[in-house]
Design a protein around this nucleic acid. Structure first.
Length: 416
DNA sequence: CTCGGCATCCTAT
DNA sequence: CTAACGATAGGATGCCGAG
């Protein structure tokens, strides 16, 4: 394939920028100019930082750290809550502008896109000028800034967009790799995370350049066959993955929740798991799929995490059938330690309708359950996710359990 | 030896 | 003074037992 031209567009501190842009539009002060961050509930003990301003960064506040730790580093940190409806709108708005320039756009996440600009030379003779035009339009029309990286493939475009921020355009073409990428620390390379970086550092490998020069075989010995191979190519700037305009089909669905108060009884745990099962099963039904594997995840107060999974005999999308397995799995894996997290995952998806009738179940049962799911899905599509609840997620006195209710109300984004 | 099933680890936003 | 802390998703890996 001939040389490609790829842009990577990345919103600077997305969640914080979007909140700041909204406030500025309302005549309020600009959060980007003060130490500020988006965190969980500021009251809550379980929240983490999901975006921070540049002034906050100067205090050492980092994305992913607990809110409590960020506040210790920066007591005056202004914390704002997440607003996913706002994020979704801003995401659509900037992607619309990007799309209008690109023959092929891949939505990589809520705040990142790849544009395949290959073959646009006649309309856009100067890629850097075009990138500036896109970036400036987003800033001027929408009120927030982006970085754009330009390269011959997705990897180098993405690396380039991560250079100096904010509101910048950078290139990383093949003849610039040595100067612009090889001096960077190994951990800056895409798909080379903390764990692998530590291993390499221990061996004296500090920069991407040193990594690139390492024999592939040795890298595979240290990081595994696949990762070693992939990172050898990446460090040398090689990547032929295409920009895809269609999202990949889902391979699985999961729901997990961390609780303010520990879970210590089955009476607390089971309604939560039923609700989580219903949430993921509903997403699966929406996509017209069935699953053949279910798993439960628990995390103890001591932070030990365990998963337990089981193959299903028949593909199913019926909440009750999946939950029956989830419940078994919970009982098999949980021995009563106090829990801070519960989660459900369904995988091994298929589209087929084929069902082998169970020897132990009335044939009519399956159909009844399917009708129950369909009815509840329809009600929630019309009236919202909390309009109906399954009887077993409600305690016998008719009131919803405190933890179960907190968990259900915490569900986000079901119909945005 | 290979494959499926499973638990865990790693990585990303 | 020292680990602490989210939700969701995809992929890799190592182990084990069956055939």
């Amino acid at each position: 394939m001939a040389t490609r031209l790829i842009f990577h567009v990345d919103v600077n501190s997305a969640f914080l920028s979007w909140e700041a842009a909204r406030r500025v539009k309302e005549g309020l002060p600009d959060l980007r100019l003060i130490p500020s961050a988006v965190g969980g509930d500021p009251q809550s003990r379980t929240g983490i930082i999901t975006a921070k301003s540049i002034p906050a960064k100067k205090y050492g506040v980092t994305t992913g750290e607990p809110v409590s730790m960020a506040l210790r580093k920066c007591p005056d940190l202004v914390l704002v809550k997440s607003d996913f409806d706002l994020y979704t709108k801003c995401s659509h708005a900037f992607k619309d502008i990007c799309q209008s320039y690109a023959p092929v756009m891949e939505s990589f996440s809520i705040d990142e896109v790849f544009l395949d600009m290959t073959g646009t030379g006649l309309i856009y003779p100067d890629p850097v000028a075009t990138a500036h035009e896109i970036k400036d339009r987003i800033r001027d029309e929408l009120g927030f800034t982006v970085n754009i990286g330009i390269g011959p493939n997705k990897l180098l475009a993405k690396m380039a967009s991560d250079f100096t921020k904010p509101d910048r355009v950078h290139t990383l073409f093949s003849d610039e790799i040595e100067k612009k990428m090889w001096p960077l620390p190994v951990g800056d390379l895409l798909f080379l995370g903390k764990s692998s970086a530590e291993k390499l550092n221990r061996m004296g490998i500090r920069t991407i350049g040193e990594l690139a020069r390492m024999p592939e075989k040795e890298l595979q010995r240290i990081l595994g066959e696949k990762a070693g191979h992939a990172l050898h190519l990446s460090a040398n700037g090689i990547d032929d993955s295409p920009v895809r305009d269609k999202p990949e089909e889902a391979k699985g669905y999961s729901a997990e929740t961390t609780f303010e108060e520990d879970i210590v009884t089955y009476e607390q745990a089971e309604p939560i798991l039923l609700n989580q099962t219903d949430v993921v099963a509903r997403r699966m039904r929406r996509d017209g799929k069935k699953c053949t594997c279910a798993s439960v995840m628990i995390r103890t107060t001591a932070f030990h995490t365990h998963t337990h999974q089981r193959k299903l005999y028949n593909p199913t999308d019926v909440t009750d059938e999946i939950y029956a397995v989830i419940r078994e799995l919970l009982h098999e894996t949980w021995h009563g330690e106090s829990l801070r997290l519960l989660g459900v995952q369904i995988t091994d998806l298929t589209e087929e309708e084929f069902t082998q009738f169970s020897l132990f179940e009335e044939p009519g049962d399956h159909d009844k359950k399917k009708k129950l799911d369909a009815a509840m899905d329809a009600i929630r599509d019309k009236y919202g996710k909390n309009s109906v609840k399954r009887l077993s997620t409600v305690q016998t006195d008719g009131r919803i359990g405190r933890k179960a209710k907190a968990e259900m109300d915490a569900d986000t984004d079901e119909e945005r």
